Simulated assay, not measured.
Amino acid sequence: MTDRAPQPVDRQLPTEESRDLLALVRDIAQREIRPRAAEEEEAGHFPREVFSLLSEAGLLGLPYSSDFGGGDQPYEVYLQVLEELAAARLTVGLGASVHTLACHGLAGFGSKEQRAEHLPAMLGGGLLGAYCLSEPSSGSDAASLSTKAVRDGGGDWVINGTKAWITHGGIADFYTVLARTGGEGPRGITAFLVPGDAPGLTAAAPEKKMGMKGSPTAQLHFDDVRVPDSRRLGEEGQGFTIALAALDSGRLGIAACAIGVAQAALDEALTYAGGRRQFGRPISDFQGLRFMLADMATKIEAGRALYLAAARLRDAGKPFSRQAAMAKLFCTDAAMSVTTDAVQVLGGYGYTQDFPAERLMREAKVLQIVEGTNQIQRMVIARHLAGPESR
Rank of each mutant, 00 (worst) to 15 (best):
E207I: 05
S215C: 11
L201H: 04
T202P: 00
P195H: 12
A198T: 06
A198P: 00
G214N: 09
K209R: 15
T202Q: 00
Q219Y: 10
P199Y: 00
L220P: 03
H221M: 08
R226N: 05
A218I: 09
G196L: 05
A218P: 10
A198K: 07
G196V: 06
A218S: 15
P199V: 00
L201F: 04
D223T: 06
V194Q: 06
A198W: 01
M210D: 13
L220S: 02
S215N: 10
L220T: 03
P199A: 00
M210F: 13
F222D: 06
P199W: 00
F222I: 10
G214V: 10
K208V: 01
A205W: 08
A205L: 11
P216F: 08
M212N: 08
K213P: 08
P206T: 12
M210Y: 15
K209A: 12
K213H: 15
G196K: 02
A218C: 11
G196R: 02
S215A: 12
A198R: 08
A198V: 05
D224R: 06
T217S: 11
A203I: 04
P199E: 00
T217M: 14
G200C: 06
A203Q: 04
K209H: 14
H221T: 06
G211C: 02
V225G: 02
P195G: 12
Q219I: 09
M210S: 12
H221S: 07
K208N: 01
K213F: 11
Q219H: 12
K209W: 10
T202K: 02
R226M: 04
G211P: 01
M212R: 05
M210I: 12
L220C: 03
T202S: 00
M212V: 07
K213G: 13
A218F: 05
P195E: 12
L201E: 07
D197C: 12
T217R: 14
M212L: 14
M212C: 08
G214R: 02
A205V: 11
A204I: 08
G214P: 13
V225K: 00
M212Q: 07
P206R: 13
A218D: 06
P216K: 12
K209E: 14
V194F: 04
G200H: 05
L220R: 02
G214D: 13
K208I: 01
G214K: 01
V225W: 03
M210A: 15
G211L: 02
G211V: 00
S215L: 14
Q219R: 15
H221L: 09
D224K: 05
P199G: 01
L201R: 03
P195F: 13
Q219K: 15
K213N: 15
G211Q: 01
P216N: 12
A204R: 13
T217I: 14
D223I: 03
P206E: 08
A205N: 09
G214I: 09
K209T: 15
V194G: 06
K213R: 15
P195V: 11
G196T: 08
A218V: 08
L220H: 04
P195A: 12
G214A: 10
K213C: 13
A204N: 09
P206W: 14
F222Y: 15
A203D: 03
G211A: 02
V225L: 03
V225H: 02
